[in-house]
Amino acid sequence: MSEIIRAGLLSVDPGQELAARALGMTRPRILRRVIVPQAIRIVVPPTGNEFITLLKLTSLAYVISLHELLTASQVRGAADFHYAEAYSAAVIYYLVIVSVLMVIQAQLERRYTWSSVGRRRRRPVPVVSVAHDAR
């Protein structure tokens, strides 16, 4: 996560800071008005990725005998051998949570798109989407 933020901050063109300094802006202002808003655009997609991965990995919490969603449905299914129904319910829960996260991410991305509304879709952000799923 900290690496994602670092990459975002580093990705902002140094010319932007130079221009802000030339205007006479002070450092905190340059950060707040120029650097951070531009870094957010880069940071949002991989962060969304991270959150969704994190959600999916909660199912591993059964290892420390935490009663999370997947374990709950397993136990429920074992009660009367209706596994399909129990797991389907779990699927729906996961789907809803992931969808909500995706919608939030999409809205954040739209908020930090800098082209006038309805004119042109923005260019894809030049960031390699990091596959953290290799776990």
């Binding site: 063109d13 010319g15 932007q16 130079l18 221009a19 802000a20 300094r21 030339a22 205007l23 006479g24 802006m25 002070t26 008005r33 120029v34 808003p37 531009q38 655009r41 930090y112 800098w114 006038s116």
Partner: peptide, 25 residues
Amino acid sequence: EKQLAAHRSEVGMVFQRFNLFQNMT
């Protein structure tokens, strides 16, 4: 550096690559 910031605004600068703020209209 701190006192300079105020004076920089007295000298305008048009950069080679313009350096407009990308996040503003």
